[in-house]
Design a protein around this nucleic acid. Structure first.
Lengths: 218, 218
DNA sequence: GATTTGTTCAAACAGTCGTTTTAGCATCGG
DNA sequence: CCGATGCTAAAACGACTGTTTGAACAAATC
């Protein structure tokens, strides 16, 4: 394997694990068995290498989203929601059976770091990778609630679902120690996906049943 | 104000905003109008200053939790849940009316950074600040579901609620751009708290109504 | 008034950061 | 064989990191 490929491979792991700023070029090169100058020669600098990694992550998310949306087709919205959540949670499972299909956890780890300590690439990532997913989920929730996608109830329910998915996907040291038997195995993960769908469907139906008003009885 | 106090004040803001590693002693001292050696003189080093800040954050969370739990008393569980969520979301509101009572957003920003890039203080923070809250919420959910706190359905519902609260509390660049009109004003925040409670209550009741089984119909 | 104590200061320490330089390698086209 | 090309090597660059030093200063203590 070429030096370039080794660098990309190592950088993917490291950047995802510790974020752009907390990874040094020297660490990367040592881990990749390359010279310090290699990163500048092949990628024009540290940011160039990071751009390469982020580009791969964005592509992975986008193609995975499109595949998921296409596979869902025009099936009932409840099933499409389940596929959405299930696909999201499956990405955190380290033991993906199909390697080429396994959009690994590193993608979401990278996103989590980027969301907390944004690099100049953050806006582009948001538009390319995340927004399509959000828009799809929002349309889906709107359909489930029989409301317009701009309805505030739709926004809030979308947010509630997204929050639950993110809680599984994003790395979080405290969650790991606060919730027993974490991280979940693939069977528990499937059960968790079922839970999120059932839980959220009940919430959606409850929210759709009543008009958007301010509950003042507490 | 003494140099020591100015340093703590500046460090609180900076560490919360950028995390321990991404803040330099020189930046802190420049912002505080102090000499570079001041932080070593007063705190024995950068980590000592960070310990001071984290200690204040942990105290703030713990006392706020205890006050919230005490104020809830033995009121109906539904109302206690609303107080829990409401108190959580109120911490992200920058325009807290009562300054002394305002457990500001910086506490959660600090926690978010610590959860992604843990320092040696992470385990202590988890046990002192976070676990009491989680245990309280878990017991509350168990009561609402009429189940034991060790029930997996209780765990999952607790996680769903916590995820929604965290989504509001933790800083997240992508969320800010993906969801319109963010961050929410205090009125929208109260409405969001109502939504989370209603949404989650529906989910909890749905989850409690059926035994913990694996739904295999998707 | 002399000495001690608490605090601040500029300067420098050794180390790491990303990047650049310059030389040395093969390999290939002529 | 010769030069050109693609890549790698060690060394050094200037800037930045947390920390330490030793002198300076004010106020308090003897």
């Amino acid at each position: 394997m070429t030096t370039r490929d080794r660098l990309v491979r190592v950088a993917t792991k490291q950047f995802a694990a510790h974020g752009y700023r907390n990874v040094s070029v020297r660490d990367l090169c040592r881990a990749a068995g390359a010279n310090v100058a290699a990163v500048n020669y092949h990628f024009g600098g540290k940011l160039g290498l990071y751009r390469e990694v982020v580009g791969a992550a964005v592509d992975a998310i986008r193609t995975s989203s499109e595949r998921m949306i296409f596979a869902a087709g025009d099936r009932p919205p409840v099933e499409r929601l389940h596929r959405y959540v299930s696909a999201y949670l499956r990405t955190v499972a380290r033991n993906g059976r199909a390697p080429d299909r396994a959009r690994a956890a590193w993608v979401h780890q990278l996103m989590a770091h980027e969301s907390m300590e944004p690099t100049p690439l953050a806006p582009w990532i948001a538009e390319q990778a995340l927004m399509p997913r959000i828009r799809y989920l929002r349309a889906l929730v709107a359909e489930l609630m029989d409301a317009r996608p701009t309805d505030r109830r739709v926004h809030r329910c979308t947010l509630s679902i997204q929050a639950q998915c993110l809680f599984y996907a994003a790395p979080n040291k405290f969650r790991d120690s606060a919730f027993p038997s974490w991280p979940p195995g693939s069977a528990e993960l499937a059960a968790a996906a079922d839970h999120i769908v059932e839980f959220s469907l009940a919430g959606i139906r409850h929210s759709a049943a009543r008009p958007a008003r301010r509950a003042a009885r507490y």
